[in-house]
């Protein structure tokens, strides 16, 4: 691997999670199983999976950095490059497309004007398309960071984007699944 780029300058990526990691390693008889939980944690911590994080995971699990890299590059949720504060993932699979996902995506792109890499100039939003997120009865839908937003309309998407810009959060996100609504 090339010299370390990215990562938390001067410190260890997982330093403040020592207790969690100690507990995590008790769950598996083979340490390597903790790769995905640690990669997910690294991305949560830093916004992407840095080389520093992959080296540290390798150290923690007695692996080589390429073994960690090999696993990390298989999974679409893991990104080796930084993304916007809000990662907007619009489902484009058939079930959402049947109920207007393409229209919504076009509107979002026209409204936020992301560059070729999907990121807005201010670095706040990255728009990407994803395949089915298991929300087909409530499409069109998108996931922003950890949260699902369902039964979207242009109006609703506009409110979500505005809320996120202003407060960093949005009350329109989905709670536990309940469809169809019953009295």
């Amino acid at each position: 691997m090339r010299p370390v780029s990215g990562g938390v300058a001067g410190g260890m990526v997982f330093d403040k999670h020592r207790d969690f990691i100690a507990e995590l390693l008790t769950r598996y008889p083979v340490k390597r199983s903790a790769i995905l939980p640690l990669l997910n944690l690294a991305q949560r911590e830093e916004g992407c999976v840095s080389q520093a994080a992959m080296r540290e995971i390798a150290d923690l699990l007695d692996l080589t950095p390429p073994q960690v890299f090999e696993t990390a590059t298989f999974y679409t949720m893991l990104s080796l490059k930084p993304r916007g504060t809000f990662h907007v993932q619009v489902c484009r699979s058939l079930m959402c497309a049947l109920v207007g996902a393409d229209d919504l995506l076009a509107w979002l792109r026209a409204h936020l004007e992301p560059g070729a890499d999907g990121a807005t100039a201010d670095g706040r939003f990255t728009i990407s398309t994803v395949e089915c997120l298991g929300s087909c009865a409530t499409g069109p839908m998108m996931q922003i960071n950890d949260d699902y937003y369902e039964q979207l309309t242009r109006d609703k998407v506009g409110r979500i984007v505005n809320d996120l810009k202003q407060t960093g959060d949005c009350a329109l996100k989905s709670g536990p699944f309940m469809m169809p609504e019953r009295k």
Partner: peptide, 29 residues
């Protein structure tokens, strides 16, 4: 009986049972 939640990271194929096991072992699914 100890139950643990293990989250994937985006891969349809990990729903295939042997790919799921590979992924759970920390490998490509």
């Amino acid at each position: 009986v100890n139950v643990y939640v293990h989250a994937g990271a985006g891969a349809y194929i990990c729903g295939e049972e042997t790919a799921l096991l590979e992924s759970l072992e920390g490998k490509r699914g």
